[in-house]
């Protein structure tokens, strides 16, 4: 299938800052594509340029193989990271107002059901919780039956339950066959929702692929950790590379499976063992030497 979106060497500079410095990617229809990176990486800026909210300083953006036309606004849905809604409107007023701006809006029932808004329909925009507000913003991004949906940090600032709840909604949207681009600085979110991830840092994409691919490519093995007390031989004689952390010994291994086999064959006491398989956080750490959240 031809890609729904192609971004070629996109650049965006503000007066002195180059927020996006030549990024390129291609998104086939029907997937959830994630821009993962720490705060300030340039995710929001990149997204807003692609959305046509701000103009690019360089590069090319093709939607369905062509530059944006008037119809673009009717075909994409956008959830911004920082927006407020009109004062003194209820959730229902807000949905109705925005629906009326589009040619072929989604039905009210479907929106309310998808985004779970039934019990707050008559509340004022500014009298709803963070999670409810985020669901309303999501509903606004869906109300023109878009083919392509942009979500900028959809779950940032939500409590774990509200976060889960939102993830389920995003999954349901994906199952509807929509294409989603989301940004996040949470590797859980990226791993849970995205089929393909571009890791961004300082305005550039430093790695791209599906989560398992990225982990395979950038992380060697896993970590097996045992209490220091379990180990009776001198540490220097351990069969695996190790370091001591807070009364435990952490050993690095090519694969967890292989590491466990070695330890068992040497008769180590494996009680209280903990095992860590590499994740996207480690990918970022290995690529940049920094953690995602600073």
């Amino acid at each position: 299938m031809p890609p729904i979106l192609e971004v070629k060497n996109l650049i965006k500079t503000f007066k002195t800052v180059t927020a996006v410095n030549g990024i390129s990617f291609t998104i086939p229809p029907g997937i959830c594509f994630g821009l993962l990176g720490p705060n300030g990486a340039g995710k929001t800026t990149a997204l807003e340029v692609i959305e046509g909210i701000t103009s690019p300083s360089g590069g090319e953006i093709l939607f369905n193989g062509a530059p944006q036309t008037e119809a673009f606004r009717e075909e994409v849905g956008i959830q911004f990271q920082h927006t407020t809604l009109l004062d003194f409107l209820t959730v229902r007023n807000t949905l109705e107002t925005f629906r009326a701006l589009y040619r072929d809006p989604e039905s009210m029932e479907h929106l309310v059901e998808t985004c779970n808004l039934a019990e707050i329909l008559d509340h004022m925009n500014n009298k709803i919780s963070g999670g409810q507000s985020q669901r309303l913003m999501l509903a606004l991004a869906l109300l023109n039956k878009p083919r392509l949906i942009f979500l900028d940090e959809p779950s940032t600032g939500l409590d774990p339950q509200a976060r889960r709840n939102l993830w389920e909604i995003v999954r349901a949207i994906k199952e509807d066959g929509k294409t989603i681009i989301l940004t996040t600085h949470s590797m859980d979110e990226a791993e849970y929702l995205c089929d393909e991830i571009a890791i961004m840092d300082h305005g550039t994409i430093i790695a791209q692929g599906s989560p398992p691919e990225l982990i395979r490519r950038y992380c060697r093995g896993g970590i097996i950790s045992l209490p220091r007390a379990n180990i009776t031989i001198p540490l220097s004689q351990l069969p695996l590379p190790y370091k001591e952390v807070n009364g435990r010994v952490e050993m690095t291994t090519e694969t967890i499976d292989q590491g466990l086999k070695i330890l068992m064959s040497k008769g180590f006491d494996l009680s209280d063992i903990s095992v860590h398989s590499p994740d996207l956080e480690d990918v970022f750490l290995n690529l940049t030497g920094r953690k995602l959240r600073e």
Binding site: R73, F80, T83, L85
Partner: peptide
């Protein structure tokens, strides 16, 4: 005020 707090941005994202 609406330009500052992003309401206009939200509206710009529609066909308005």
């Amino acid at each position: 005020r609406y330009r500052k707090n992003g309401v206009l941005k939200r509206l710009k994202a529609t066909p308005l």
